[in-house]
Design a binder for these strands. Structure first.
Length: 494
RNA sequence: GGUCGCGUGGCCGAGUGGUUAGGCAGAGGUCUGCAAAACCUUGUACAGCGGUUCGAAUCCGCUCGCGACCUCCA
């Protein structure tokens, strides 16, 4: 079953029904990280957002080819130094060592957030040939010019002949003229300030450089995505994603390069995720307004009062739509932690519910099925995780009521109970990719807790409240909370 | 300065022109040996000022505040 999904398309700024080029298949390209240091939370948010989309498309029955690149050359700093070269210089490593090191660490971090690996994760340096070919193609079409061994994209000519430079980012070329900063590298070589380099001649000190028809040099930053998306997804594919800070110039230039090289739009749908804020400002690697994922996990940061599990952080992010800014705060994280545990507790209790005996369609059946459908409808509507979560919490209330006997299981039919179990599992684990955090307790701990709860129950039967409360309060001090319910006592680690 | 977006109850955060978002916190209640948990009830919010409309948080205009992008950023 392939569901009908609506996506907010940045290209048209409208919500549109998603229609893949090839039925049942999706080509998805996401701009990945530049691996010159560790990812920060803002990166994580973006990749997590696309991971949810990837998972949901898969769950909806699509065959998805998910390409997310690793940028390991061409992405320059303000002073013109390559980010990877700088990392290599600072850490006294080979550039490729820097790349490998931070690629590994990036993967490890995304694993902690339980995101799926892409189908293909191509590196820019592994595709120098393709990029050189694309530069040549753009030159051949007359949309680029060479100056002193560097090749620049001719935005003026492109705009005149293709007429759509700036469409994605809403930019007008005349504005770019006046707004351009004058501290940019090789600005004087360009015919026009809005032109951009697609091949750059390397100076003597540059470590990372390759032979090309124009010079020994390296590709422009925007070029890799154009070349690699074309190679792995074809000249036109379904969805291109990235953070909205990439919209201009990166994505705008990417589109221009593809259109110039082959006269085709690279992606039918563009999806841009919004920024993660902290203290009301964009969380950003370059200006230091940031908290690292590790600091967030350990609590070792002035911005948080304690550490938060990656799953809590993920849950926190899921409560906001990907297209909205999200302001990180300790209060919000604490609230998210409780909400997350409530959801996971309910899921655990759901597993113990059995023997639904109603026949036919009861009111409760209808209500639960309606909630399930609403959760799917929310995801179909531009991947609205907050709305879907709200539905899961409605279901959570029902589950807890059933658990406590406030609603009787004989008001529920077995089919609907099964459907409920299946849906909760699919959403929590398959679509949201959450995992249990209290399962860190081993089998041993489970056994010990069973024994302790059993002993306390004996004490309670004997009205030995001193012993019963001592057990409870001591465990509480260890952050293990006992929960006395109708069907016995359960426990969680807080 | 240009472009775009946002401003929702104590906090976070959804939102289609008329119907309960949801989470956390708070209040009352049920349950419980007590407590916790859970469940039930509860808050009457949409920056301000105008306008359109039978009706606007939702559309339009203005004002104020905030943020993003404007060739480093997910």
């Amino acid at each position: 079953m392939v569901r009908t999904i609506h996506i907010h398309n940045s290209l048209t700024r409208k919500k549109e029904e998603f229609k893949p080029i090839h039925e049942g298949q999706v080509g998805l390209y996401v701009c990945g990280p530049t691996v010159y240091n560790d990812v920060h939370l803002g990166n994580v948010r973006t990749f997590m957002s696309f991971d949810i989309m990837y998972r949901y498309l898969l769950h909806s029955g699509y065959k998805v080819r998910y390409v997310r690149n690793i940028t390991d050359v061409g992405h320059l700093l303000d002073d013109g130094e390559d980010r990877i070269s700088r990392g290599a210089r600072l850490e006294q490593l080979e550039p490729m060592e820097v790349v490998q090191k931070y690629t590994n660490r990036f993967h490890a971090m995304m694993d902690r957030f339980n995101t799926l690996r892409p189908s293909i994760e191509p590196r820019a340096t592994g595709h120098i040939l393709e990029q050189i070919e694309m530069v040549q193609a753009i030159l051949d079409k007359g949309f680029a010019y060479e100056k002193n061994g560097s090749v620049y994209f001719d935005t003026i000519k492109f705009a005149q002949e293709k007429g759509n430079y700036g469409k994605l980012s809403g930019r007008v070329i005349e504005d770019l003229q006046t707004a351009t900063r004058d501290d940019l590298k090789n600005q004087s070589e360009k015919n026009h300030p809005s032109d951009f380099a697609i091949w750059m001649k390397a100076d003597q000190s540059h470590i990372m450089k390759w032979n090309s028809p124009w010079s020994e040099g390296f590709p422009g930053w925007h070029l890799e995505c154009s070349a690699m998306s074309t190679k792995y997804l074809g000249p036109t594919f379904d969805i291109h994603g990235g953070g909205n800070d990439l919209k201009f110039p990166h994505h705008e230039n990417e589109v221009a390069q593809n259109v110039a090289a082959c006269s085709c739009q690279p992606a039918n749908y563009w999806i841009h995720t919004n920024m993660l804020l902290m203290n009301g400002k964009k969380m950003s690697k370059s200006d230091g307004n940031t908290i690292s994922p590790e600091e967030l996990f350990s609590g070792d940061s002035p911005h948080v009062s304690k550490g938060y599990d990656p799953m809590v952080v993920k849950f926190f992010m899921l409560q906001t739509h990907y297209s909205s800014t999200l302001d990180l705060s300790d209060d919000a994280l604490q609230a998210a932690e409780k909400g997350f545990k409530k959801l996971m507790d309910a899921y655990k209790h759901l597993q113990n519910l059995d023997e639904a005996t109603a026949t036919g369609s009861t009111d409760l059946d209808l209500e639960i099925n309606k909630g399930i459908q609403a959760a799917y409808a929310a995801m179909d509507d531009d991947f609205s995780t907050p709305k879907a979560l709200a539905q899961l919490f409605e279901l959570t209330t029902k589950i807890n009521s059933l658990k406590d006997g406030h609603i009787k299981l004989n008001e529920l039919s077995p089919e609907v109970l099964d459907n409920l179990k299946k849906t909760m599992k699919v959403f929590i684990f398959d679509i949201f990719g959450l995992t249990n955090i209290e399962d860190t307790g081993s089998r041993h701990l489970n056994g010990v807790m069973e024994l302790i709860i059993d002993l306390r129950q004996s004490a309670r039967v004997n009205k030995d409240w001193v012993t019963a409360d001592k057990i409870r309060d001591t465990l509480q001090a260890l952050n293990i909370q006992l929960k006395d319910g109708a069907e016995g006592t359960s426990w969680t680690i807080n």
